[in-house]
Amino acid sequence: MSRISGRISTQSKDQNNLLVLLEEAQSKFGCLSQEIMSELAKSVGVSISEVYGAATFYAFLSTKPQGRNVIRICKSLPCFLKNSELIIESVGREIGIQPGETTPDGKFTFQLTNCIGACDKAPAMMINNEVYGDLTSKKIMAILKACK
């Protein structure tokens, strides 16, 4: 048993460390460029593939430049049952881009994400670090208007 758990734990330690560094870099530079990822790989002592793997797995890390306001609408089941589709549509209509895109003026990036832990306020979304719940089309207009 120790044979198995021993080998797993050493690997995840490096990866935890990497994740912390990736998060720091993300908040400092806004996105993870190839230069940043290469540098991190070197300093942590892992391969570029591993850094790229982690950077593309986590929804809150991004390898592409992001808008000033990153909108993340929850696409998980509880929110879906509370009509998140409508919310996704309204946001898309309001800012004129599809999920996965950034507005040309760099104001908004629009993404869909899995559960953000606000199911009690479904349908929910996040803009940067702020959570907004019990969304309606009307509410969304007001929220988006307040964004700089």
């Binding site: 391969s47 591993e50 790229y52 793997g53 797995f57 390898t63």
Partner: peptide
């Protein structure tokens, strides 16, 4: 003892990548 591959992306898009894919 190399580290050429890693798993990248998520869910249906998951893929074994080399460097920046």
């Amino acid at each position: 003892k190399q580290n050429v591959f890693a798993v990248a992306y998520r869910g249906f898009e998951s893929k074994i990548v080399v460097d920046f894919d």
